[in-house]
Design a protein around this nucleic acid. Sequence first.
DNA 1: CTTGAACTGTCTCCACCGGACACTGTTTCG
DNA 2: CGAAACAGTGTCCGGTGGAGACAGTTCAAG
Lengths: 227, 227
Amino acid sequence: MINLLWGDPPPPTRGPKPAMTVEGITKAAIAIADTDGLDAVSMQRVAADLSFTKMALYRYVGGKAELVSLMTDRAMGLPPHHPPQPWRQALMDWALDLYAGFARHPWLLLSTVGRRALGPNELTWMDFGVRALAETGLSGGQQLDALMTIAGQVRTIAHQTLTLPGGTIGISEENITSALTEILATQPDRFPGLTAAMQSLAGSENQGLDFGLNRILDGLEVLIKRG
Amino acid sequence: MINLLWGDPPPPTRGPKPAMTVEGITKAAIAIADTDGLDAVSMQRVAADLSFTKMALYRYVGGKAELVSLMTDRAMGLPPHHPPQPWRQALMDWALDLYAGFARHPWLLLSTVGRRALGPNELTWMDFGVRALAETGLSGGQQLDALMTIAGQVRTIAHQTLTLPGGTIGISEENITSALTEILATQPDRFPGLTAAMQSLAGSENQGLDFGLNRILDGLEVLIKRG
DNA sequence: CTTGAACTGTCTCCACCGGACACTGTTTCG
DNA sequence: CGAAACAGTGTCCGGTGGAGACAGTTCAAG
């Protein structure tokens, strides 16, 4: 099956006009994922929202996996443009833009795990990030590694902050910290380090993203200045 | 439903002796996930491996989600002990131990996304990590944020390195870089930064984990020394 | 203008999934 | 010796992704 992500194959000319488009299907699927979560995206549901039969979708996309790939790349979109900046600020913007993308489509956190096909938009994101580091004297591998580290930080915080409604089991509190404090309250002696850390946390806001990013950027600065 | 993760409820004494144990079920499920991936873990499959009926499992675990939680916490296990060390070395060991865990059970990368119940082992991991930072003068929140950043780095590299056989679609090469070079070879002008970075990468080994960790630790050192 | 090939969308069917529920058989306590 | 509590099974359900046959539509070639 040809990879729909990279330009559709030339449309045939015989036969009836297609009533749908890959783009329309993808948009419908994204709309479902945005409102009801990625698990709610099924072939039936997508087809129903378009007033078609499930099997009709298979004329356009190869299957569920391919549809998810298309959704992912489209929802990711292209990274926003920024005026030229020093590498540190550029990377910070890049990270915040990425976080904003996850905030818009939290299901991206789920659809981008496991081996998957890379779409053009995803690659463009990486390209932008690498270019921000082009002038720093870092090697290509170092640039990519640095980018991965930053992307990982964004993912981590996004994952722990956004965490879709699709809860799995047990603890149904609003966020991780509340569930955590609850457990720690009952058995403080078992996790002394955590208990102490949580006590001195009380009320401090979610600065996790900025904190981690600044540590990483500090570390990069050390490396870059060292030459 | 009582959380099986935190000590089973007292077993009843009436009625026939249970033929299975929660531990046995969990171990069987982990074995399946280790060999055939997390998707292969179904109630039927687990029950069949134990020579029981699917529905019999529901006498022990509340459902699929709870089983996965049990698998996750058990597979994570307790973090290994290390002799007392300076915080930097302690965190480095912590990160490498965590990575080793992901390498042993790559499906943990999948089972630990989305909101989920926290098990005692997972909390112990966090406790160990936080304790490594206890003497650094960082606040509790900063300690937790630092840990999240490091864990995120480990996850990112593990995810991009291990990536189970359960591929989804398209590109079935051995790792991301090979698929990437393939794409870049066909359209180098579209991703100039990436192309340049990949060219100067040729043959360098997977140092991504060490690189990112050292940047993060460098950044933490800057913050800690600053006081 | 006709005809046949190419194409679209629908229909039926399948295996599998997680799970509800009623039921039989077993064990132990009053 | 019951009766209550419990274990495991069998049956059923709605849902999933997907294969394949089929009829309707459209266009290009004769």
